[in-house]
Amino acid sequence: MLSLQGATVRFGGRAVLDAVDLEVAEHEVVCVLGPSGSGKSTLLRAVAGLQALDAGRVSLAGRDQGGVPAHRRGVGLMFQDHQLFPQRDVGANVAFGLRMHGVTKGERDDRVGELLELVGLPGAARRAVAALSGGEQQRVALARALAPRPRLLMLDEPLGQLDRSLRERLVVELRELFGRLGTTVLAVTHDQGEAFALADRVVVMRDGRIAQSGTPLEVWRRPADAFVAGFLGFDNVVPATVAGTVADSPWGELPVPRDAPQGARTLLVRPAGVRLVPAGTGLACTVSARTFKGTHVAVHLQPPDGPRLEAACALREAPETGDAVGAEFDAAEIVVLD
């Protein structure tokens, strides 16, 4: 459906998109994940035709889009802060794209009703957009983007400004909706939870380049490098030398899975792979801090030397700050990166 080859955008000499190759298949939901400034919004704008490429090409359904202006590309884009037209009501916002495509009044009204029904706002057509809540605006923006039946729907931080509970509910609704409609979707977000919940495939971006691409499960289980691991929220990342099933690290000798790559590597230790044992066994540590995470407690451990270590611990078993404990490691929760 969508294909980017060597897509490059430079702002004042700096490459914001750096030779990006990306394929999105029909009916696929792809989520681009990255910190702010990683070039993910520029990627969407380049596909939409709002941002000219300095090199490379964008093709839609096999056709090169070079020289095709935004209004003839037939893609939909939902903007980060929705950008609803303030002087038009909800119905007129949704009908805008249909009007631009010369759809008759009768058909427009039918389609607007249908779409508002679909996004859970039946009968809202006459409401003013200024009177909508954030969640409602998001739904109207989605209905507006879907109305002209774009061959590719793009979402820029679709749930960015909404509060947490609403975001979690809408993510599920969006996922169901895209499944039902069979829409091809390219979304960008900086929120890993959103990306993992929404996408068939996650693309992690860093400094204008693609750092990793894979299913949410693959990316979660095997981050490609220290950057991806860090971005996913893992702090227990250290250099280590792997020999057989043992890795020599600043935290001592850690067990690693049987098929791990050998030599000088980077090691990721998931907090769940750090078991707390009574002081005297394992790696001797002091508890420097603990934060309550709802389902578990994150315990920060300070070994005598070497970097801090985070462990996930059941609520009942969490030690107090200042306690001396031992740490043991579980090979199944340790990933050798690179």
Binding site: G49, L50, A70, H71, R73, G76, L77, F96, A145
Partner: peptide, 9 residues
């Protein structure tokens, strides 16, 4: 831009 993406010249 929103209008352009929705097909407005």
């Amino acid at each position: 831009e929103a209008a352009a993406v929705l097909g407005a010249s």
